[in-house]
Design a protein around this nucleic acid. Structure first.
Lengths: 141, 141
DNA sequence: CTTAATGCAAAGGCTTTGCAGAGAC
DNA sequence: GTCTCTGCAAAGCCTTTGCATTAAG
């Protein structure tokens, strides 16, 4: 077990997640880089180089990671959930044409003010999504 | 045709939508109040009091309305799309426990700053979602 | 040996699609 | 008569679930 894997295991344990082989693989795919991936993308990548992890395990594991706070679910597309390895406060820019999702950090954009919360509720999270699309017709046409 | 219906028809036409009977019914359900409804909710309500509109027509019509800018799609829940009759600039508060979605108007919360856009893209929309949950365990327990 | 995790396949929920029939002008 | 819209049912896609098998301590 190399250094990188050791850290992944540590992070899993820190979040109360039993570090099994499949979970370590999935975590390595998702946590190695600061990207956003759908469950299916994770499934593809994990099974490209490594032994084999079933689709059910990928979905269940990602759900577990999200519950435990290791990754963040990002809801920007009605057809799939994105998993974000960046758990810190930041926002998102979503290209509806290409499906690409990228981070916007706080220094570029901030939310000011807090709305009155309904009684008996607590804030679970806050999310800003800027939706962009590729320009089709040129601006001058 | 009463006054209210006449206005609905006008709004449909203004958005380039051919005002058929079904479309008028759906528009009345959705535009009468400032609410957010899923396609299925619209389907239920339309068929509670009125002749009958098929599920396919409800889905297709809502998609058409969104395309034409008559309503706004709100993506906050991976399992369904909400349609918002409020097209003006505002944000959303989503209760993940109850599934309730409500508006936050701009005076309560604003976004400051604009992120650098990827070249060749234009902003299609911006959305802030505050996610709350009902308190279960009491804060002092 | 006992408990937890994985894999497979089936089921589920929301939405879209194909195509025939009905409606509008 | 022609063009558009509607409705039904089937298909599609992502995700969850049930249950037997396998792995771990």
């Amino acid at each position: 077990m190399n250094e990188q894997t050791a850290e992944i295991v540590r992070r899993l344990k820190d979040h109360g997640i039993n570090p099994t082989a499949q979970r370590i693989e999935i975590a390595q795919v998702l946590l190695a880089r600061f990207t956003h991936m759908s469950a299916d993308e994770v499934f593809q990548i994990v099974n490209k180089t490594e032994p084999r992890v079933s689709k059910a395990t990928v979905y269940n594991t990602l759900g577990l990671f999200a519950d435990k706070g290791l990754v963040r679910e990002v809801i920007v597309d009605p057809s799939k959930i994105f998993y974000d390895s960046n758990v810190g406060p930041h926002h998102h820019l979503y290209n509806v044409t290409t499906g690409e999702l990228r981070d916007i950090d706080q220094q570029h954009m901030q939310v000011v003010g807090l709305p009155p919360l309904p009684p008996g509720t607590t804030v679970e999270g806050m999310e800003v999504v800027v939706r962009v699309r590729d320009e089709r017709g040129s601006p001058s046409s």
